[in-house]
């Protein structure tokens, strides 16, 4: 019993760290650092998944952990980093006026997630049930990142964070989706990251910048 308690605490602590990286992403302005943080989130996620696999004796979760490590902690960050260097954006920073409000909003979203998943936590008997709210919070914070930031790179990181949150949700609420679905989702994420790379080059060619704010030609109706 003591051992399980210890494991549960470890899982909770790791989940808290993953959530912390989401907050850190919201506060980070430099592109290179942003991508590094994202890689850390992926790595923490993989470790958490492996720990859940160990505690619950679900060997297929090791495979999921490995997949996450390879894709979210290594491949995608490496790819993004290479693009950022190629486009000479690594020192670019974003203006974050009013970011205190954004962080407060993020805290509110976290509380909101706890409220939303209450009925599920009540039903669940898994050791991980207390971190389901954290997974939803990560999804919502990823969304917040996409909404408040105006750089294409940051929006992509936000998009990938949402994917992280979704994967985490599947792990902690059901010990992972069926393998075929998980592979399909991983494939989609991989294709999406390649497409994002293509887009960076297109954006650079067409508007000569990766500021999404410059994308304002399409209006409801031309006055």
């Amino acid at each position: 019993m003591v051992a399980v308690g210890l494991y549960t605490q470890a899982i909770r602590m790791l989940a808290a760290l993953v959530l912390f990286t989401s907050f850190a992403l919201l506060a980070q302005t430099r592109m290179a650092a942003l991508i590094r943080l994202f890689a850390w989130q992926g790595a923490l996620l993989a470790v958490t998944t492996a720990l859940v696999a160990l505690v619950t004796h679900q060997p297929r979760l090791y495979l999921s952990a490995l997949l996450t490590l390879g894709l979210k902690a290594l491949l995608i960050p490496w790819f993004l980093n290479r693009l950022v260097i190629r486009l000479e954006l690594q020192h670019e920073t974003e203006d974050l006026r009013g970011n205190a409000m954004v962080l407060l909003g993020a805290a509110a979203l976290t509380v909101f997630s706890y409220y939303v998943v209450m009925p599920i936590v009540e039903l669940s008997t898994l050791v991980t049930r207390n971190v389901i709210a954290v997974s939803l919070a990560i999804v919502l914070l990823g969304m917040l990142l996409i909404i408040v930031r105006r750089k294409a790179v940051t929006q992509v990181v936000g998009f990938m964070c949402m994917e992280n949150g979704l994967f985490f949700a599947a792990v902690v609420s059901t010990y992972g989706m069926p393998m075929v679905v998980e592979l399909g989702v991983a494939f989609d994420v991989l294709v999406a990251s390649i497409l994002f790379g293509v887009f960076f080059l297109h954006l650079r060619d067409s508007i000569d910048s990766l500021d999404v704010d410059r994308l304002n030609r399409l209006r409801e109706a031309d006055e």
């Binding site: 969304m143 929006q155 998009f159 979704l166 949700a169 887009f199 994308l215 399409l218």
Partner: peptide, 24 residues
Amino acid sequence: IEAAWKYFILCGVGIAQALFGTVL
């Protein structure tokens, strides 16, 4: 390119909600 970016991000964010729903 603007249209495609909007399409990508908005549909991506939207459909992520559907995956969460599927997990539930």
